[in-house]
Write a protein that binds this DNA or RNA. Structure first.
Length: 464
RNA sequence: GGUCCCUUCGUCUAUCGGUUAGGACACAUGGUUUUCAUCCAUGAAAGAGGGGUUCGAUUCCCCUAGGGACCGCCA
């Protein structure tokens, strides 16, 4: 048995969405699990719609997810010559034929079929007409001579045996009248040339498999194994499309989702291993298999992505988390200035505990990042005269502090609570508002300590 | 319309003929707490429907219903 080789073959006609990313992930994981190789093929033969920007987006998306392909990117458009050659060979061998129907004629047939509500299948008109009867003014397409009788079975590694009546597969076009190959031909030839052993792809390609296998058979090639994974649906059960919100990786990146959480989430979407939920990279590679893939489509659930992200934010090493936060802020928010770096870094331990995303951490850090506190009018009202008096006392007490630590602060606050016959909220809330401009936020001691004595006194100076 | 596929808590799923149908997210309640959270505990929540096969079906088979994919000289 030859070494496992898988591939991901997107077409750069649009941004790669999360469903495609999952397909890539499954292919990559499977190949790594089997100690094989994983390849990237860019199917850019649709010149009209293929865009360089999409290709870049696809490559960057995979890179961000940590999905690395072995070898060079395989650019399909460079191989068109090969595809044409094979089409000609199929023609010469009698496995394909020239069809002289005009596109108008085909359109007409389709329209009629639709009106009569009968299924349209190309009528194989030119399958048995010899070439010398061909009209001179029409450039032919080449169609594959598809099986007419009997049934075909694909042993799908996910779907099981899939059986179909051969006559429902039409004589599909393999070479257009402009001499360019079509998808099923190109994909088959490339997969063969790239020596793919396993084709793991979306369910939407299932019917194509029957066409592609016939090409393999006609050429006497080894047929790879197929695994068709169910598609991802939106939360309301519809097919995920490029127009959907939150469908490209960038949609997740910009709210501060970590690639490892998305990877873990995507892995568990339509695949499972016992009751295990958290899979680090090593686990993923070690445990991934095709048997664990379910047969039914699954829905995208944002709250699960968020919760997975929360887990990774809390469990990832802080240095790494800081690095990620820094990069994130630089791209999507404001750059963290150098003099704030250490404060943020050392505050991460409590900042991250209130966060589901990097964006949350950024928001929680705002009181450190911005020296000027901005107040909400309603919040400001909470700092009444009584509170001002206490804050003033607090300020005086801490200015005299020699050791500015939690223990001493606790003593001071405890004392003030007693002295003023109030509770913790009576002093904690106005303090928090004065220092951060918000009623919510990290613990008050964390805020005070992270800001430092000088800055706390400065901010409390705003009191009037 | 034709072909193919799918169907367990709201969601992702476990179960490979015998379970009080398990876990996770979300949700609810309670506790801890210094606000918001975290954390901990508890709770509610599922085999689409109908037939078979079997001593016994969520599990195997059939039908119905619902959902999805494909039906391009796109990929």
């Amino acid at each position: 048995m030859s070494k496992v080789a898988t591939r991901f073959a997107p077409s750069p006609t649009g941004a790669l969405h999360i469903g495609g990313v999952r397909t890539a992930l499954f292919n990559w994981l499977y190949s790594k699990n089997q100690k094989g190789t994983f390849h990237l093929r860019i199917e850019d033969t649709d010149k009209e719609r293929s865009k360089e920007e999409h290709k870049i987006q696809i490559i960057n998306s995979l890179k961000w997810m940590g999905i690395k392909h072995d070898g060079e990117e395989y650019i399909q458009s460079k191989m068109i010559g090969e595809h044409v050659k094979i089409a000609k060979k199929l023609l010469a061998n009698g496995d394909a034929y020239k069809c002289y129907c005009s596109s108008e004629e085909i359109e007409e047939q389709k329209k009629r079929a639709k009106q009569k509500k009968i299924p349209y299948v190309y009528n194989r008109k030119w399958r048995n007409i010899s070439d010398d009867q061909a009209p001179k003014d029409i450039k032919p397409v080449i169609r594959f001579k598809s099986k007419i009788e009997g049934t075909s079975i694909v042993k799908d590694l996910v779907q099981g045996n899939v059986e179909i009546e051969n006559n429902t597969i039409e004589d599909f076009v393999i070479l257009r009248n402009d001499e360019t190959p079509t998808y099923n031909l190109s994909a088959s030839v490339d997969d063969h040339n790239m020596e793919m052993t396993h084709i793991i792809r979306g369910d939407d390609h299932k019917i194509n498999t029957f066409k592609q296998i016939q090409i393999y058979e006609a050429l006497g090639w080894d047929i790879p194994q197929f695994a068709h994974i169910p598609l991802i649906h939106t939360i309301d059960g519809k097919k995920l499309s490029k127009r959907d919100n939150s469908s490209t990786l960038d949609d997740y990146k910009k709210i501060g989702i970590l690639p490892e959480s998305l990877r873990n989430y995507l892995l568990r979407l339509g695949w499972s291993y016992k009751d295990k939920e958290i899979f680090n990279l090593d686990d993923s590679i070690k445990l991934f298999n095709l048997e664990g893939i379910g047969k039914s489509p699954s829905k995208l659930d944002m709250s699960r992505i968020l919760s997975m992200n929360e887990y990774y934010i809390k469990n990832i090493e802080e240095n790494i988390l800081y690095k990620k936060l820094k990069e994130y802020c630089e791209v999507y928010k404001d750059k963290i200035i150098e003099e704030k770096e250490n404060t943020i870094k050392s505050s991460l331990i409590f900042l991250k505990n209130k966060a589901k995303t990097l964006e949350d951490i950024f928001n929680n850090s705002k009181y450190i990042l911005n020296d000027e506190v901005t107040f909400d009018d309603n919040d400001k009202k909470l700092v009444n005269d009584e509170a001002k008096k206490i804050i003033h006392l607090f300020k005086e007490k801490i200015s005299k502090l020699e050791v500015f630590d939690r223990e001493n602060l606790e003593q001071i606050i405890k004392g003030l609570i007693e002295l003023n016959n109030t509770n913790f909220k009576g002093i904690g809330q106005p303090l928090r508002i004065m220092l951060t401009g918000s009623k919510f936020g990290p613990g008050i001691y964390d805020i005070i300590l992270s800001l430092g004595k000088k800055e706390v006194i400065r901010r409390l100076g705003n009191i009037r």
